[in-house]
C-alpha cells in the first residue's frame, strides 16, 4: 500500500538525501587539510604575520575602535588607532580546542578573511547596574534622562559575525532574561544548526569587562582574528 503513494516517499527520500549530503559536506570540509602543504612553517608564519600587520595598519587608520580575537595569545583586545585600550584573557567554558580551531576556520572562510564586521549581538540575561529608584533621584539632580544612564550589566550575551560564527560571553552575576521568546528560539536554532556546522565558543569574563565589550560591540564593529598557530600548515615531522 505504500507504493500507492510514491510521492510521499519520494519527498521524504529527497529530504533525507539532502540533509545527509549537507551534513557530509560540512563534516568533510571540517576535515579538509590545511592549505600550502609544501611551504615551510617559517615562511607561513612570516606570511601570516605580514598579513596581520597589514590588516592592523589598515584598521589603525580608522578613528573607530576595533576588536582583536587573538587565539594565539588567548586574548580578546580592543584597540584604538592600533593601541591596546582593553584586553581580557580568553577563559574558555564548555569549549574544546577543536571548537577554537573551528572558530578560526569559519572566521577566515574560503577567502581567508582576517577582518570581518560584527553582524549582531544578542543579550540573553542582564542585571541593571543602577536601580531605577536611584536613577530617578540622580536624573532629577543632574537633569539627565534615566535611560541614558541605565547600564545593563550583561550576564550572558552572544556576538555573531555570521549566523554560524558565534562568540558567547558569560559572567558570574545572576541577571534577568531580556527577551525570553527570542532567547529560547535562539537556543533551538543553535541546537538545530550545530550538527550542520556552527563555530561557537564560550568565554567567561568579569561583569565589568563584559559590560565594556557588550556596549562597544555594535553591528559593523571591525574584528581582526589572530588564528591559532597550530591551524597553520606546518611541515610534518620526519
Amino acid at each position: 500500500m505504500f507504493y500507492q503513494n510514491k510521492w510521499i516517499f519520494l519527498f521524504l527520500g529527497i529530504f533525507l538525501c539532502g540533509m545527509s549530503f549537507f551534513v557530509c559536506k560540512k563534516t568533510s570540509s571540517k576535515n579538509a587539510s590545511s592549505p600550502h602543504p609544501t611551504a615551510t612553517g617559517d615562511r607561513l608564519r612570516s606570511e601570516l604575520e605580514y598579513r596581520l600587520i597589514q590588516a592592523e595598519l589598515l584598521l589603525a587608520k580608522s578613528d573607530q575602535p576595533y576588536l582583536v580575537v587573538n587565539l594565539n595569545r588567548n586574548e580578546l583586545v580592543i584597540k584604538l588607532k592600533g593601541v591596546v585600550v582593553w584586553n581580557q584573557p580568553i577563559l574558555l567554558v564548555q569549549t574544546s580546542a577543536q571548537d577554537v580551531e573551528d572558530f578560526a576556520r569559519y572566521f577566515e572562510g574560503e577567502e581567508k578573511n582576517l577582518v570581518r564586521p560584527l553582524l549582531d549581538k544578542f543579550l540573553f540575561t542582564a542585571l541593571n547596574k543602577t536601580p531605577d529608584s536611584v536613577l530617578t533621584i540622580i536624573s532629577d539632580a543632574v537633569r539627565a534622562k534615566p535611560e541614558l544612564m541605565q547600564r545593563d550589566v550583561p550576564e550572558r550575551f552572544q556576538l555573531r559575525w555570521s549566523t554560524d560564527l558565534i562568540l558567547e560571553v558569560r559572567t558570574e552575576i545572576i541577571g534577568k532574561p531580556k527577551e525570553k521568546l527570542k532567547s529560547t528560539m535562539l537556543e533551538i536554532r543553535h541546537a538545530i544548526q550545530r550538527p550542520f556546522g556552527e563555530a561557537h565558543i564560550i568565554v567567561k569574563m568579569s561583569p565589568e569587562a563584559a559590560l565594556t565589550l557588550y556596549r562597544l560591540a555594535q553591528p559593523g564593529l571591525s574584528t581582526l582574528i589572530y588564528p591559532p598557530m597550530q591551524n597553520q600548515a606546518l611541515p610534518a615531522k620526519k
Binding site: 612570516s46 606570511e47 605580514y50 598579513r51 597589514q54 590588516a55 589598515l58 584598521l59 577567502e111 581567508k112 578573511n113 582576517l114 577582518v115 570581518r116 564586521p117 559593523g220 571591525s222 581582526l224
Partner: peptide
C-alpha cells in the same frame, strides 16, 4: 569592511 587575503600584499 571585510579584509581578506586578496586585499593584502604578499611577501
Amino acid at each position: 569592511l571585510v579584509i581578506s587575503d586578496s586585499l593584502l600584499t604578499r611577501l
